[in-house]
Amino acid sequence: MKFYFKIIFILFILFTFNNQKIEAGENNKEFLKVDWSFKGVFGKFDRASLQRGYQVYTEVCASCHSMKLLSYRNLAEKGGPEFSKEQAKAIASNFDLTDGPNSDGDMFTRSAKLSDKFVKPYQNIQEAKASNGGAYPPDLSVLVKARSGGANYVYSVLLGYDDPPSDVILDDGVYYNTYMTGNKIMMPNPLSEGLVEYNDGTKATEEQMTKDVVTFLAWAAEPHLEARHKIGFKAIIYLLILSILAYFSMKRLWSRIEPEV
């Protein structure tokens, strides 16, 4: 009987894991893999990488991609890039947004504060589409969680621009990508060597920028990941200890009952 249940349990696990073909897209090309620092039981974010990733996002991606669920204060909060409050305030003040109405009834422009959400490049989805050949550059706040394959998928797509095979014809404004679902993407290759001059002096190769920006996106999607791992470890150790105590209490109590045949 126990044997059967082991089988079922294994089937259940296999089933849930295979359900989404995590490691390869529907094109069945396996994703590029990175040894992300935030994966695993003790996974943490690399602060420097997050800060560089934020720089890449701001300088390269933010002109088309919003991140409307993040606030500037998040950049200074624990578990993230951990800029100082002053740095985060300075970053915020680089962006303008519309506020109001004031006491005259008018809307006015002011620079962003820590409490504001990231300023969007476009007012609305329609404007975003119109400015990008009809394609909407998706908001990046939870993108890493919104794609099967997560960080590995996004990393692969960013590095996956290739010449199309001979039998694929591309319309204007459409590019070939080895890892993108459907192989066609309307975003041109956004990164190239040296495109960003990193504040900390790291060499800005394509791989480096991609790794940094994907790390940043992974944090943006899961800002409490480090707290979750930390508390989770304690919780599971605690439950194992209490299970053992409960087990021995149970044995002790049941010893009063005569054993069964």
């Binding site: 605690y238 439950l239 200890i241 209490l242 105590l245 021995f248 209490s249």
Partner: peptide
């Protein structure tokens, strides 16, 4: 001995 096990279990449980 019996009390210790039960007491320990209750205490650990309460913390949780």
């Amino acid at each position: 001995r019996r009390d210790f096990l039960y007491t320990a279990s209750y205490a650990v449980g309460a913390v949780g």
